[in-house]
Simulated scan of single mutants.
Amino acid sequence: MKLTKFGHACVRLEKGDSALVIDPGSFSEESALEGARAVLITHEHFDHVEADRLRRAAEADPSLEIWTNEAVAATLTDVPAKIQIVRHGDTFDTAGFGVKVVGEWHALNHPDMPIVRNVGFLVDEEVFYPGDALTPPGVEVPTLLVPTNAPWLKLPEMVEYLREIRPARAYSTHDGLLNDIGLGLVDRWLEMEADGQKAEIRRLKPGESVTLP
């Protein structure tokens, strides 16, 4: 499986000639969706989903499948794709990938803002993407996509999450709000944790790919 990081919180997974994209929001490159057969969306915030680009992708390929929670689906009624609503505990197959849904709620963002629905996705029992939450998946996770910067996230929480999950590999997500100084700090924090856990834990640059076992 090939994993490619796009801007901020978007990743693309590929096997053979099939591609699946997670959270192609407004901070990521629209090219992430080119040729994709399926899209997974964790929650409704604009940095994770943008209806107009999904509409364009579905118009180019009417067979496109979108899997997300009920709140997001309600915002995509004008997107001519096959939209499937999923909840915690669901399992499904799409674009040649097996997916399990894990989690229900976004992390607390602001005391005056309601907590929105958030579903994470475990893909092929290999890659876990929690969305905007630090949800423990309850199973072994070979590859974790770990949020590293957000209004709802503190450094100790991110480190504790990595230590709880103890993945063989972890790559940064949700880092598009940082300048070069902030990204340098993330790189250092992940390097320290990689040394401590004897694992591959690092940030992928936008457009960078890795091949997973």
Rank of each mutant, 00 (worst) to 15 (best):
S28C: 05
N179I: 12
A107P: 13
E50P: 00
V119G: 01
L122I: 09
A168C: 14
S31K: 04
G176L: 00
F121V: 02
L108R: 15
D93T: 13
R53K: 07
L145Y: 03
D23M: 08
A74C: 07
V159L: 08
A73C: 01
V159F: 06
K154T: 13
S26W: 12
W105H: 13
R163A: 09
I22D: 02
H8R: 10
E208L: 08
N69G: 02
M113L: 12
A38F: 05
T135R: 08
N109C: 15
A9P: 06
R163V: 11
D180I: 06
E59N: 13
L108D: 15
P151W: 11
H88F: 04
R55N: 12
L144W: 06
I83H: 08
D23N: 12
G131Q: 01
F128H: 03
F46Q: 15
F121D: 00
P114L: 03
E30S: 03
P213I: 11
V119M: 01
V11P: 01
R202H: 08
V141C: 11
A95D: 03
R163G: 07
G7V: 02
D187A: 04
R53D: 09
R87F: 07
L185C: 08
D23G: 07
I201T: 08
M113K: 15
V99Y: 08
V99W: 08
V119Y: 00
A36Q: 02
M158T: 07
E125I: 13
F97C: 10
I22E: 04
S31F: 06
L162A: 12
V141K: 10
E34Y: 05
G35V: 04
V159G: 07
R117S: 11
G98C: 09
T173V: 05
G7R: 03
L108P: 15
K82V: 14
H45Q: 11
D61C: 07
L212G: 10
G16R: 10
T94R: 10
G16F: 12
P206L: 07
V102N: 06
H43M: 05
I115K: 11
V21R: 08
P167T: 00
H110T: 06
Y161T: 11
R56P: 00
Q197H: 10
V11D: 05
L190R: 00
E140A: 10
G103H: 06
Q84F: 13
G184D: 06
D17W: 10
D52T: 13
D61R: 09
L153C: 05
R117G: 10
L177Q: 15
S209I: 13
L162E: 07
P167M: 01
S18I: 10
R202C: 02
E193I: 09
I41Q: 01
E191T: 11
V86A: 09
E193Q: 05
R166N: 01
G103V: 07
A194I: 12
D195H: 14
I115V: 11
A36W: 02
P80L: 10
G120K: 01
N149A: 13
T75Y: 11
